[in-house]
Every structure is written in C-alpha cells, then in structure tokens.
Design a protein around this nucleic acid. Structure first.
Lengths: 207, 207
DNA sequence: AATAAATTATCACGCCCGTGATAAAAAAGA
DNA sequence: TCTTTTTTATCACGGGCGTGATAATTTATT
C-alpha cells in the first residue's frame, strides 16, 4: 500500500500552484489562501507543509533556481567544446543557450514572468534580496561564459572588452525578457530571438 | 489674502508623496493611508482632492508622462538638426537624449523606478494597461527617432535594419534601466551610460 | 457678523490577510 | 483492534485596506 501523500510531491504541487497564481495575478496576490485554492487544497493542508508564508516563498525560489539550473545543464556541455563546430553552428548554439532566459514558449514565459515579479519585489522586500542578487549574477555569468567561449574559439571580433560586452548582452537579455513578458503583442517571440541572434552575429562581425 | 491652499499644488504634493512611497516601499504599499502620511496630510484631505484611489493613480500616471515629456522636449530640438554637428557631437547628443530613460541620477532613478513598478503592475491590473502600452511605445519611438536621425545624417553604418535596431536599442535601454534600478551596486550609473554610448558607437562603426 | 463653501478630521463597515490554536478525519503502526 | 501519527478542516484574533457617511473646523463671501 503506497503512501497516499508524498510530502515532496505535495510541496511541488503547492509551489506549482503558487507559480500559476503569480503568472496570472501577480506575486502580490499570491496569498496563502489564493495558492491553496489554486492547488485545490484547504489552507490548513498548505500550512501543514509550509510553516509560514516565508517558508513557502523560500521553497518556491529554490525550486525556480533548481529548474533553471536543470535546463541550463544540458546546454553547458554542448557549449563547452564550441570549437568543434563550424562558425554558424557556434552562433546557433550560443543563441540557443542564452535563449533559455527569454520567454520564447509558454514554459519559459512563465519562468521569466515569475522571475521578474520576484525580482521586482526584491527591490523593497529584503526577503527576496538573496534571490534577486543570485539571478542577476547568474544571468551575467551566463552571458560572460558564452562570450568567453566565442572569444576563445576566435569567433568573436577581436578587440572586444569582455566585461563591457557582458554588461551589454546582459542588459539586452533582461530588456528582451521584460519587453516580451509585458508586451507580447509588440515584441513577439520570433522578434525576440531574432534580435538576440542578430546581436551575436554583430559581435562576431559578419556585417 | 492669498488662498491658503492651491488645489493643483495640493494634488502635486500628494502625487509627489505617492512617488516617494512607491520608490521607497513599492507600488503595492502605496495605500491611501500611507500616501497621506507621507504627505503629512490626513487621509480625509487626500480623499477631498481625489475621489478614490483610481483617480489618484490616474493623476499620478499622467504626471509621470507629463514630466518625462517636459524633459524630452529640451532634447528634441537639439536632435532635430543633428547634421549641423560633427560626428562625435552627434553621438554625444544621441546618447544624452536616450540617457533620459536611464536612472543616472536620483531624479531619473526615481522616475525609472516608478515606471518599472507601474509597468509591472500593468501586467495583471488593467487599470495600468494604458500607461504601460504608452510608455512602451514611447520608448520605442524615441529609440527609433534617434536611429533615424543618425541614419539620415549618414552617421549610422549602412545596411542596418532600422526596425530591428530599434528593438535592440529599446531592449538595451529597458535592460539597463532594470539592472541599474534593481542592482545599482552591480550596474552603476557610469557603466550604464558607458554601455549605451558603446552601443551607439558600435552602430556607427568606428571599430 | 452671518452665511456659505471649502477643507480637515473621524467613525464604521466589509473585505482579505497571516497566523495561532484546536478539532476532526484519515492513515499507519502496534 | 487500539494507538499513534499524519493530514485535513475550522475558528478567531489583530491588522491593513478602500470607501461611504458625517462631523468639525477653517476659509471665503455677502
């Protein structure tokens, strides 16, 4: 006879419900009651698995980071030996890697949306400060890594200041994500990916 | 005997207080009571000049847009006849123009912060939808205008897709603003302005 | 000075919130 | 079966919110 409830699975369900509420109504309206309703649970059940609201949020933030790491891991190996591929393939891989941070499909859209809301909240709520700092440095590190790889294989145009280009690429990624989430009608997924790719092409100088 | 209270001035005072609360505590905590406290007024007084919360928000949004327009107007004439200036001056003017959208000093920082919070709220609250749409298109139009001017004077590198470059520049501006507001320790004002300038230099091809 | 209008100040209502406390029900272990 | 633990379900409290209603006070007008 299997255990009828798996605590870990329950926690994941609740966090998924939290994410849905955040995407639909905003972090601000993600109250314990709303999350419980979304999960189809009584608020008492939710509170049994999360001592208080902060614990739920902490768990959710960790889940966010874990899932993103998971998806990035697949790309990491492919980009490690970038020199094995032809130039065009290199750019394709690099763009695909960075595009994990862009809301190009429903899953990524939900992720980026949640990240944006949490980061916005972090500006005035210290409870989210650690997450915000980490996501910011993670994006930066990812951008830098890609640029470094392209530079090592000689694909990048020479004479580029990597630190500067990292800031530019990071800002571009953040801006594309923000624009695509807030105004999907103006900045659609295709344009979004195209701008990123064009930027990389530009850095590698075929124009 | 002068009127002791000027209704328009009062409204401006209240809106200024609202902006301070939003910058300090976030839009979410900008309740009528909090704003009244910040303005040093009784909530009854605030409600005498704004029938309800929505009216206050509408007034605040309009004030935001008006003030930004005001500041941009000064730049508009200078950039109109861009061809009169030498190439380096052209880039300086263009960067200065666009930098009005970056949080490079306390005033702009406050402005961008408020804009970000309102736009984030607009994602899930229809009451802010009109503002969000307008700010998005305004930024885009500003970016496009600058690129068009640079193109007309032959400063821009040839063969550029203006629509594409507009998206790229818009995203860069949004991303720089977001990064500088959320993580001023990582992305300081100097770097922020530098990246923008470097991007324009890049577009005009001196590298 | 008397009246009208504008402004400031309170009170109360219903709503949603997080949370402590506790009971009820279900499952697991003996 | 009986007991223990886990899980689910309620209740109540204090707090903040927007807002309707109304009083109190101050300023302007006649």
């Amino acid at each position: 006879m299997p255990k009828l409830v798996d605590p870990d699975a329950r926690r994941r369900d609740v966090v998924d419900a939290l994410f849905r509420v955040v995407v639909r109504d905003g972090l601000q309206r993600a109250s314990l009651r709303a999350v419980a309703d979304e999960a189809g649970l009584n608020i008492g059940s939710v509170r049994h698995y999360f001592a208080n609201q902060q614990e739920l949020m902490d768990f959710a933030m960790q889940a966010m980071l874990d899932r993103l790491d998971e998806r990035l891991r697949g790309h990491t190996e492919r980009i490690g030996n970038l020199g094995d591929h032809p130039r065009d393939e290199q750019l394709r891989l690099a763009a695909g890697f960075l595009a994990e941070l862009l809301p190009l499909d429903e899953r990524r859209r939900a992720e980026v949306t949640v990240f944006l809301d949490f980061n916005a909240a972090a500006r005035t709520d210290p409870a989210f400060a650690a997450l915000a700092h980490r996501t910011a440095t993670d994006t930066r590190r990812l951008a830098r890594r890609v640029l470094t790889r392209l530079d090592e294989t000689g694909t990048l145009r020479p004479g580029r200041d990597l630190a500067f280009e990292t800031e530019r690429l990071t800002a571009l990624l953040d801006g594309l994500g923000l624009g695509a989430v807030l105004h999907p009608d103006v900045l659609d997924a295709q344009t979004c990916a195209g701008v990123l790719r064009a930027h990389l092409d530009d850095l590698c100088g075929d124009g």
